[in-house]
């Protein structure tokens, strides 16, 4: 790695940290703007103003927003995520219960999606114009146009309600057997794979097709190279940057998908926790969850940038 490359990567890191800070500001003050507050939410509609004020004071909600922001952000630095206002437990406890579940779901989805989508995209590019390519491309367009909640609802109706093969909910009791766990994962993972695969297939194919139109691919063709060699040896290495970016984008789209899927299947993940937090105006919980999602997103984008830089020999040397 040269000085220039390290400088470029350093710059990306700095930008990521700055973004995270700006996001923390946005998250905190936007949640402030949500109508209603925890005190009202906890005490119900019929509460008197006095009771709400007392509770607010107990929870520290009467202090100025700027001070509460400072408390929160410095707490984050110390690893102190604060207390959930609703369950009165440390936010870190709540999250450590749920985060692994979400990570497992995301990891399984990625492990299936990335090789599947890249593989299909590359094969479609190799045999561009063939029946296989057309089938893949039209299927991809079809699934891009279906929203996740619709796919989720449809497969629940098909496999749980009519066929009764799979459980409609993915609740995981600690004592669950291996088969139960696998069965519980099938539907959420399928929905996520479908929704994130399509865009990636299309972008992979498009990126390779662009590279296929270049003079160096034509020259390789005139050296007698076969279609697979043209794509894999000549076009693909020059399409790494757009492809990793499309992977990062699709994977960050996965986060949105997780929220819907966890809600539909009642899956005990982080997204479900956050949705519940929004219902009860549990600010510390919402804020921390947002920061985790955002950090994940930035991590993906940054990884894509760094891979793209390293894949370019002009920047590498």
């Amino acid at each position: 790695m040269t000085k220039r490359t390290s400088a470029m990567i350093g710059e990306r890191l700095a930008v990521a940290v700055l973004s995270l800070f700006l996001v923390s500001l946005a998250v905190f003050f936007i949640t402030e703007l949500l109508p209603g507050d925890t005190a009202q939410e906890l005490l119900g509609q019929a509460v008197t103003k006095e009771a709400a004020a007392i509770l607010r004071e107990q929870l520290g909600l009467d202090r100025p927003a700027v001070l509460r922001y400072m408390d929160w952000i410095f707490g984050l630095f110390r690893g102190d995520l604060g207390f959930s206002l609703v369950s009165n437990r440390p936010v870190s406890d709540l999250i450590s219960e749920r985060l692994p579940n979400s990570l497992i779901l995301a990891a399984i989805t990625m492990a299936i999606t990335i090789p599947l989508a890249l593989g299909l995209g590359i094969i479609a590019a190799i045999w561009r114009g063939s029946i296989f390519d057309r089938a893949i491309s039209s299927a991809a367009i079809m699934f891009v146009s279906f929203p996740e909640f619709m796919i989720a609802t449809l497969i629940v109706m098909l496999f749980s309600v009519y066929l009764k093969w799979l459980p409609a909910l993915s609740f995981l009791p600690p004592s669950a057997s291996f088969t139960t766990i696998v069965l519980a994962f099938i539907m959420p993972v399928t929905v996520l794979v479908f929704s994130s695969c399509s865009q990636m297939i299309r972008l992979t194919r498009a990126a390779i097709s662009d590279a296929m139109a270049t003079p160096y691919v034509e020259l390789a063709l005139l050296k007698g190279a076969s279609r697979p060699r043209l794509v894999l040896r000549h076009a693909l290495p020059n399409s790494v940057a757009p492809i990793v970016n499309s992977v990062a984008l699709s994977m960050s789209g996965l986060l949105g998908g997780v929220i819907i899927v966890e809600t539909v299947f009642n899956y005990p993940g982080l997204a479900k926790l956050m949705v519940d937090g929004v219902m009860t105006r549990d600010m510390p919980l919402i804020q921390t969850c947002s920061m985790i999602f955002c950090g994940f997103y930035l991590l993906l984008i940054m990884a894509a940038d760094i891979i793209a830089i390293l894949s370019n020999p002009r920047l590498r040397r």
């Binding site: 020259l219 050296k223 007698g224 370019n312």
Partner: peptide
């Protein structure tokens, strides 16, 4: 494919564009 590059070969107009940059 067997003919290209082996029996008949090609020198392109712009070598700068015809070499794979990566």
């Amino acid at each position: 494919r067997k003919l290209r590059g082996h029996k008949v070969s090609y020198v392109p107009q712009s070598a700068a564009a015809s070499f794979n940059p990566s």
